[in-house]
């Protein structure tokens, strides 16, 4: 009896230790990055674009990368929304419960979700070359949108699946078509979940570096049209960290702090939004 209790204790201790390690790692990462970054963070970092010789330690900031990332992620998220919302609605409203098409599509989403972002980058590059484009904001947006579609669709699909059948049937019995039901009933009912899904995808898009490496390019200027290359925050961090100059590396830490704060903000926002926009939801 004693031995059994000892075994029980041993495993429980191990589990608590593992939990502590995982949560500790998260805190450790956030605290290290912000701790290292804050001292180097200054107003000119986030309000100015790099001057000549910025990567050698001269004056300037990373406004180009911050704006570039925002443009890129906003564009990509909008595009991904347009692509994935109709698909998810089709899967849940139009398809029968166990239809082949629905199963195949869900499976494709699962598989696409697992594809590494560098492969998306390479594929984006292939597309880019095929259409004769150069590295540009547009190419970056398309690539990141492809990356975001499976993430967003899976998240939204989970929510729309939970819409009670009675709600749909009530709408049909009032004479609404399926399209009207989808747009006016289901989307409203699922709004909090959909917003969360969109924000998750947005966060993924803004933080991803490997896919834009080939496609969006890098520049010191702020892009003014879709055809120009755009700098992104993750790549700015990567390049600044790659230089041998301590001042520039300091700035990499500061940029990393900015990105981390941005991501934290987005995920808190996602939580708050999903709580607040529940007023149309019928339980």
């Amino acid at each position: 009896m004693n031995k059994r209790r000892l075994v029980e204790r041993f495993w429980k201790a191990l589990m608590i230790a593992s939990t502590a390690v995982v949560i500790g790692c998260l805190l450790f990462i956030v605290v290290t990055v912000i701790w290292k970054g804050l001292p180097a963070l200054s107003l000119s970092m986030i309000t100015r674009i790099p001057k000549g010789g910025y990567y050698l330690g001269k004056e300037g900031g990373i406004l180009n990368a911050i704006l570039g990332s925002l443009y890129l992620a906003l564009g990509a998220t909008a595009l991904a929304c347009v692509l994935s919302l109709p698909v998810v609605i089709f899967l849940n409203v139009y398809c029968r419960k166990r239809s082949r098409l629905a199963e195949l599509t869900r499976f494709s989403f699962d598989v696409l979700w697992g594809i590494p972002s560098i492969v998306y980058g390479a594929f984006g590059f292939v597309l880019m070359v095929y259409f004769g484009m150069r590295t540009s904001l547009l190419a970056g947006i398309v690539t990141v949108a492809l990356l975001e579609v499976p993430i967003m669709s899976r998240a939204i699909d989970e929510v729309i699946k939970l819409v009670p059948r009675e709600l749909k049937e009530a709408s049909y019995s009032l004479g609404a078509t399926r399209l009207e039901t989808s747009l006016k009933v289901i989307i409203r009912q699922c709004l909090p979940g959909i917003l969360t899904g969109i924000l998750i995808a947005f966060g993924r898009g803004i933080g991803d570096a490997a896919s834009v490496l080939f496609t969006a390019g890098f520049t010191d200027r702020i892009p003014t049209s879709l055809g120009q290359p755009a700098a992104t925050l993750p790549l700015a961090i990567f390049f600044q960290l790659g230089t041998p100059f301590p001042e520039v590396r300091q700035r990499a830490y500061a940029s990393a702090a900015i990105l981390t704060i941005l991501i934290l903000f987005i995920s808190v926002l996602a939580r708050v939004l999903s709580r607040r926009y529940t007023k149309h939801v019928i339980r």
């Binding site: 949560i23 998260l26 990462i29 990055v33 990567f238 960290l241 934290l264």
Partner: peptide
């Protein structure tokens, strides 16, 4: 309390993991 933290960890961009790796 722990589930949102795990979601948060999965949302951190890989570059940030890289910076942490280089620093620590």
């Amino acid at each position: 309390f722990a589930k949102p933290l795990i979601d948060l960890l999965s949302g951190i961009p890989s570059v940030i993991f890289g910076v942490w790796g280089v620093l620590v």
